[in-house]
Each structure stands twice: as structure tokens, then as C-alpha cells.
């Protein structure tokens, strides 16, 4: 489908929004699109003394980068070990199955008890949120490596780290990458939620919560749009890399 056809529903939504906001005539419930756009077009302007949209977004991205990076550093190696060695998998699987369904936000009280309010507890929540999707995909990716590829490597004497670096990792990379993409999505949701916790005083999540206290609904909506755009942007980045680096996976079928 042509791209200009795809934006028609978006335009329709915008028109509907305009109509409803004019009919309601109450900026504390639904401000007009123009006033939201005004906020969006000044991303560096200070908002109610809490910093600009840009600064707060960058801060949120930084927090995600910390938590997500930590999760990648732990979950990928753990996933490779678990996926590679069946007994390890059987031993840790009950733990994984028990912890996986706990929503990241259910960890908040514990995070506060352990790390108090601040960066460490936010990083912890983000870490927990992205850890499991990355772990599950890493395990799965490693386990699904074609047996013939591993046996071929054995024939040519590849063992230990060589087998890992030249066969298992590249073969599992597409699935691990999907895990990273899903994990980042969860991490991004977590940071926004974590920043809404009482006691926080920065970040894009904080900004929209704070704007609510001051009845600045246009800032809330602008902030939500920014959150959405950053989320999509990173997802597109992940997909682009996937398309370029792991083309072989699609074509191989």
C-alpha cells in the first residue's frame, strides 16, 4: 500500500480529536490538537520548572540504556549457557517459569525497599522487565541451532569458544536479536511507569504525571506522543538491523 494511503486513518483520528475537543470545550479533559502541537514544537522549552521534554526524554532513555544494558549483559550469557546445557536448563527452568509471569511493576515495592527511591530502583525495574524476554529468546535461539551445523563444526575440529563464536552465536543471533527488541519494548514501558512513582522528580514519565497535577493535559498528551515516537523509533532501528544483518534467515527457508 502506498504510504500516503496509510496516513489517512491517522488524519482521520486527528480530525475526530479536533471535533471532539471543540464540542467538549474543556482543555482540562481534552485540549485541541493545536495546543498539543505547540508543546511538541518547543521540545527544549522548560515546562513548569521541571525541565524540557527533550531533557526529560534523554534522561529516560539513559535510564533505559542502563537497565536494558545490564539485562543484556546478564540474560544473553545466561541464556547461552542454559540453552547449551540441558541439565542446567532442567535445573533453572522452574525458577524462570516462576519469576517470568510476575509483572515488572509488582517488583516496585521490593525495589523501593532494597534500593530506596532513585536511579538504582528504576534501573532494577527496567532490568527485571527486559531480562526475561531476552533470556527466553537466547535460550530458544541457542537450542534451535541446526544440529548439522554443530556436527559440521565438530568435523572441522571446532570446539569450545570457537564453536560458540563462529557457529552457535551467529546461528542464534536472529532469535537473540528478537529478544533484545522485545526486551527493549518492555524496558521502555517500565521506565515510564517507574518514573511515575512518588518521589521521582525527572524523566518523561514524571513529566506527564507532574503535568496532571497542574492540569496541563496538553503536556500529558504531548509527552505520550513523544513516548510513542521514541518507542517506535527504537523498534524501527532494531528491525532495520535485523533486515540487514539477518537476511539469511528469511531467505534460507
Amino acid at each position: 500500500m502506498k504510504w500516503y494511503l496509510k496516513i489517512i486513518p491517522l488524519l482521520f483520528l486527528l480530525v475526530a480529536w479536533e471535533v471532539v475537543s471543540v464540542l467538549l470545550n474543556n482543555p482540562f479533559i481534552l485540549p485541541e490538537p493545536v495546543s498539543v502541537a505547540a508543546v511538541l514544537f518547543k521540545p527544549t522549552a522548560d515546562i513548569l520548572g521541571s525541565g524540557s521534554i527533550l531533557d526529560n526524554s534523554l534522561l529516560s532513555i539513559w535510564r533505559v540504556a542502563l537497565g536494558f544494558g545490564l539485562a543484556v549483559a546478564c540474560a544473553v550469557p545466561a541464556g547461552i549457557i542454559i540453552g547449551r546445557y540441558r541439565p542446567v536448563e532442567e535445573l533453572v527452568n522452574p525458577i524462570i517459569q516462576l519469576f517470568r509471569p510476575i509483572p515488572p511493576l509488582a517488583w516496585v515495592p521490593l525495589a523501593l525497599a532494597w534500593f530506596k527511591i532513585g536511579l538504582p530502583s528504576m534501573v532494577f525495574i527496567i532490568f527485571i522487565g527486559s531480562f526475561f524476554p531476552i533470556l527466553i529468546n537466547s535460550i530458544d535461539g541457542v537450542r534451535r541451532v541446526n544440529r548439522t551445523w554443530i556436527e559440521t563444526a565438530a568435523i572441522y575440529g571446532a570446539k569450545g569458544w570457537k564453536l560458540l563464536a563462529y557457529v552457535i552465536l551467529p546461528a542464534a543471533a536472529p532469535v537473540i536479536w528478537t529478544g533484545l527488541r522485545v526486551g527493549f519494548g518492555v524496558a521502555w514501558m517500565c521506565v515510564v511507569a517507574a518514573e511515575m512513582l512518588p518521589g521521582t522528580n525527572s524523566g518523561i514519565g514524571y513529566l506527564i504525571m507532574y503535568s496532571y497535577n497542574w492540569g496541563q493535559v496538553q503536556v500529558i498528551i504531548a509527552g505520550m506522543i513523544v513516548i510513542g515516537i521514541i518507542g517506535i523509533g527504537v523498534d524501527i532501528l532494531f528491525r532495520e538491523v535485523e533486515k540487514r544483518k539477518f537476511q539469511w534467515q528469511e531467505m534460507n527457508r
Partner: peptide, 25 residues
């Protein structure tokens, strides 16, 4: 050296890198 019936090439490697695999190892 063994040659399998099923598809045993490494799809992320070029022909050159596949042929050189054993020597690289």
C-alpha cells in the same frame, strides 16, 4: 571430512567464508 545430505552450509557466511571454515578453525 564429512559431507551431509542436508543443508550444512553456514547461511550467514559467504561461499568463500564457508569454504574456508575448516581452515579457519
Amino acid at each position: 571430512a564429512m559431507i551431509f545430505q542436508e543443508y550444512s552450509l553456514y547461511p550467514w557466511r559467504t561461499v568463500r567464508a564457508n569454504v574456508g571454515f575448516g581452515l579457519q578453525m
